[in-house]
């Protein structure tokens, strides 16, 4: 056993220090906050991705709760199996099941298994850590990559302006299954995130929570500004925080509209949109997405 130092006797984190995430990693922070909200009586199933890799460097584990990794695409299937086993042995009252993965795992490769799990009604909370690309394999675009972002598979150049497709709206896909709770949270709003995870775990049946997690390496942002960028994404309207409980929508209001440039301009993944006159159109399009969100979710109190 590893001896916990005396001076850190308050260290009761369920995702322990010593994990190997990059400095300033939004996902490592979000995962610790999720477990802080969930408490000890959980079983966690993790898909392949940064979170899995940096928390389980052989032969160590950063997890203080039962945690299993199988594959990239079958996280929800494994979680559904665990839930079924807990149910049949009468233990589902004591233990909650969390399935979690990155946006690539969620929006693309594991989507079929997620849909099956939601549709069959398993009592599992699915958490998507959305850093908006396949980060662990070197920043390839995913279905969740936003418009015009630079990734290694959507490089901007003479013809390309970066990612050419809109971000896939997975929370709405989850909602379409008619499940009792869907929420969008951000690591920039830790207490809102905490509340949403607690709320989700208090509800029986399938739940989906998506958390926006800045990635300093993949986005080209300064590590110390992880929280800032997470907040700016919300304040611009580009990443609306909302929850839908039994069909009822509630959104986190923003005080006033921040122009999308404020969010985009200091990220290397959007740098190609700045400095040249003819890129105004792309920025206006991104502003259009933010404006639509503000309208759709009623983000600003009129």
């Amino acid at each position: 056993m590893v001896k916990v130092e005396e001076r850190d006797k308050f260290n009761d984190h369920l995702l322990a220090s010593g994990h190997t995430a990059c400095p300033g990693c939004g996902q490592s922070l979000a995962a610790r906050l999720v477990l802080r909200a969930a408490g000890r009586n959980v079983m966690v199933v993790n898909s392949t991705g940064c979170l899995e890799v940096f928390s389980s460097k052989y032969p160590e584990s950063a997890w203080e709760v039962p945690w299993i990794h199988s594959l990239f695409e079958n996280t929800s299937a494994v979680a559904a199996g665990i839930e079924a086993a807990l149910k049949i042995t009468g233990q589902l009252d004591r233990v909650r099941v969390i399935a979690q993965g990155g946006d690539g795992s969620t929006a693309d490769i594991g989507l079929g298994a997620i849909s099956g799990m939601l549709e069959r009604g398993h009592d599992v909370l699915y958490i998507c850590y959305d850093n908006e690309a396949y980060m662990n394999t070197g920043i390839q675009r995913s279905g969740s990559t936003p418009y015009y972002a630079r990734t290694t598979t959507s490089p901007p150049g003479k013809v390309s302006r970066g990612n050419w497709r809109p971000k896939k709206d997975v929370p709405q896909i989850a909602l379409a299954h008619g499940i009792p709770y869907v929420a969008v949270a951000s690591v920039g709003y830790p207490m809102d995130l905490d509340r949403k995870v607690r709320k989700a775990l208090s509800i029986r049946g399938p739940k989906y929570v998506q958390i926006h997690v800045p990635c300093p390496l993949g986005w080209g942002t300064a590590p110390e500004r992880t929280i800032d960028f997470a907040r700016l994404a919300v304040l611009t309207g580009l990443y609306p925080l909302y929850e839908v409980e039994n069909g009822e929508l509630r959104a986190l209001k923003i005080p006033k509209k921040v122009p999308v440039e404020e969010y985009l301009k200091e990220q290397v993944r959007f740098r190609h949109l700045f400095g040249k006159e003819d890129r105004k159109k792309e920025i206006a399009e991104i502003q259009g997405i933010a404006d639509q969100n503000i309208e759709k979710f009623g983000l600003i109190v009129k």
Partner: peptide
């Protein structure tokens, strides 16, 4: 703190455990 290495019990008692702090600056 992404490392979960900052602790404190009241005003002016907080510190970062430098064994784990990666210096991100958040």
């Amino acid at each position: 703190c992404p490392e979960g290495c900052i602790f404190g019990t009241g005003q002016n008692t907080y510190y970062a455990n430098e064994d784990y702090c990666k210096g991100c600056g958040i």
